[in-house]
Design a binder for these strands. Structure first.
Length: 581
RNA sequence: GCCUCGAUAGCUCAGCCUGGUAGAGCGGCAGCCUUGUAAGCUGUAGGUCGCGGGUCCAAGUCCCGCCCGAGGCUCCA
């Protein structure tokens, strides 16, 4: 169903010049063929569409006036511009609407100009450099703009007064300051800045920027994570970030979760940035038919999701608006529930053990805002409880805290301030398979309903990284450390030897740096120590002559006369066993 | 989103109460030093004091609005 509406491109301009060149419409207005010029004006390039009327005209002008008030602009130029629409009104009707817009604009006290209707016009326009200079709007018959404000990114037209853009670049987008006074020194925001792992910027509140060293940790983490999943019989997938709104209506997110979602328009359709990965995964599942023998199907995805969280809840890496879920969906038969849940719990606890931190498990049951029947919920809750009990695990019960589509087991980890955060989660879902009609063919040659598990180990890579940073106080185990060893020549004379050792270690796939700066030994040691680098390999005359290393570890212990091969062997062992010092 | 607090150089901070030429340390750059396990010395560059408005002869400083951040509330991975 197509809604008809007037389309307007709004341009806050230093000036616009236009010159009527050729008559096009039969009802072209009388005008003089000369150059007209209006300065410091909001130009409304306007296409009147079929069925637009006086109400639409008035609404469009009122919207523009409201916007102009914010811009502190008082002058408006109504400019008939047919190219914005593929469904134009008849010229007679279009002219009426344009005239009404002019009348109403005068009524609203705006200094109003109108370019002649029905002419091909040559024009020059200088659009101002501020971000609100260009706006496109669509005013419908219902009176409200369908799309609130859509800022046109490109400075497509002429860029005048060269001052503004440079200045804006400098001041508009700050890096966020961390308030070191109130935060504990091992807070991940402080360490992240000191160790050059990630940063936060005004340009994208609640969305972290990862630097190279942060990415090294994440990639190591994910490498291990993928290894575990392959061993556990999971298959990898990847789905789009932007999906059609209809999909979210089917999944129930539109109903229950829309306040937290970001929407946009592509051509004439509504799309949403995904807040969860499941609908995408489900489409992959549905692309083929399954036998009972194919199940369980375990499909994992590192999915980037966006959720609009209230500004007051954002907190470093722990609570963000854009994060990566280490997600997986298990499609299975009802008789496989318990085994699969047990498998997932073991996967999670095994993963956490590698890092050696404490966690608590919680079982959350049906919330008020939920979908599905009582039987489905009872059976799903029973499945989770059964798995926990058969493993003999302790857990806390949170009645009413489940997801809207199913109950869940959550894994909670503490941060530096003692707050607990949910990381891993296992959610049983007996309702979404109904909505998407997910089936398999049973041994009885009849289709049966799929049961689904959503689960994560880390929950959010971002949050998990923050927890790790605080847990290790930046002193990452060697397998995760962004720089595993720093080679420190005692004086410039030893630089060559240091670089040679560096090349050897680099060849072995170790992450190293060579400090060839002309500073004192004490200075270089202190610097490496503050960077929390696991090993400092000091080389001076003695080492060069004996072809050895003086190995200082992060805890300050020094071992002299270590052969390079010996060091490589030792460090590789520690990396392989993911040893936590 | 609400309440409280905060923002000054790349980083950490002083200056604000009591308005009058924007400071220090670290880091950067240049030079000297050639060093044995947590800061060697000297010089130098670097700031529309988050953004916008107001008061004032004069605002980093006082007032208002906004943005961003922090803690808490509420919510979540």
């Amino acid at each position: 169903m197509e809604v008809l509406r007037v389309r307007i491109l709004q341009l806050h301009s230093d000036f616009m010049e236009y010159e009527p060149v050729k008559k096009e419409a039969p009802n072209a207005e009388l005008t003089e063929k000369k150059v007209y010029r209006v300065e410091d004006v909001v130009v409304l390039l306007t296409s009147v569409e079929k069925d637009d009327d006086i109400t639409v005209a008035n609404t469009a002008v009122e919207e523009a006036a409201k916007f102009m008030k914010n811009l502190k602009a008082h002058r408006v130029l109504l400019y008939p511009y047919a190219h914005l629409s593929s469904d134009l009104a008849k010229p007679a009707q279009a002219l009426e609407v344009m005239k009404q817009m002019e009348v109403h604009s005068h009524e609203l006290g705006l200094e109003t100009f109108r370019a002649p209707f029905g002419w091909t016009k040559r024009f020059t326009i200088a659009v101002k450099g501020h971000p609100l200079a260009e706006q496109s709007r669509t005013i419908t018959k219902e009176g409200r703009p369908q799309q609130k404000i859509e800022s046109v990114r490109e400075r497509s037209v002429i860029q005048e007064s060269g001052k503004s853009l440079e200045e804006m670049k400098a001041v508009m987008f700050r890096q966020s300051k961390v308030d070191t006074e109130v935060l504990p020194p091992n807070d991940h925001r402080i360490i992240g800045q000191q160790m050059d792992l990630y940063s936060f910027h005004d340009a994208a509140p609640g969305m972290p920027f990862f630097h190279n060293k942060g990415m090294i940790i994440i990639n190591e983490l994910l490498g291990y994570w993928k290894e575990l999943h392959k061993k556990a019989g999971y298959k990898e997938a990847k789905t789009p970030i932007l999906l059609n709104k209809q999909l979210w209506e089917i999944s129930g997110h539109w109903d229950k979760y829309r306040e937290n979602m970001y929407f946009t328009k592509i051509d004439d359709d509504d799309f949403a940035l995904k807040p969860m990965n499941c609908p995408g995964g489900i489409l992959i599942f549905k692309s083929k038919a399954y036998s009972y023998r194919d199940l369980p199907l375990r499909m994992y995805e590192l999915g980037v999701v966006h959720r609009h969280e209230l500004s007051g809840v954002l907190s470093g890496l722990f609570r963000v608006r854009c994060f990566t879920q280490d997600d997986a969906h298990i499609f299975m038969r009802e008789d496989q529930i318990k085994n699969e849940i047990i498998g997932v719990i073991q996967l999670i606890t095994g993963f956490y053990k590698v890092f050696g931190f404490d966690y608590k498990m919680e079982l959350s049951t049906r919330p008020e805002k939920s979908i599905g029947t009582d039987e489905q919920w009872n059976s799903a809750e029973e499945g989770l409880r059964g798995a926990l009990d058969s493993l003999g695990l302790e857990y806390k019960l949170n009645p009413g805290d489940g997801a809207f589509y199913g109950p869940k087991i959550d894994f909670h980890v503490k941060d530096a301030m003692g707050r607990t955060w949910q990381c891993g989660t296992i959610q049983l879902d007996m309702t979404i398979p109904d909505k998407f009609d997910l089936n398999y063919m049973g041994s009885d040659a009849q289709p049966h309903r799929i049961v689904m598990i959503h689960r994560t180990l880390m929950g959010s890579i971002e949050r998990f990284l923050g927890i790790l940073v605080e847990h290790f106080n930046g002193k990452f185990p060697i397998w995760l450390a962004p720089v595993q060893a720093k080679i420190i020549p005692i004086s410039d004379k030893n630089n060559e030897y240091a670089l040679k050792i560096g090349a050897i270690l680099d060849n072995e796939g170790l992450r190293i740096e060579v400090d060839t700066a002309t500073n004192t030994l004490d200075y270089k040691i202190r610097e490496a120590q503050l960077e929390k680098i696991p090993y400092m390999l000091v080389v001076g005359q003695k080492e060069e002559q004996a072809d050895t290393l003086a190995v200082r570890s992060r805890d300050g212990k020094v071992e002299y006369g270590v052969k390079t091969e010996e060091f490589i062997k030792r460090i590789k062992e520690k990396i392989a066993e993911k040893s936590i010092f």
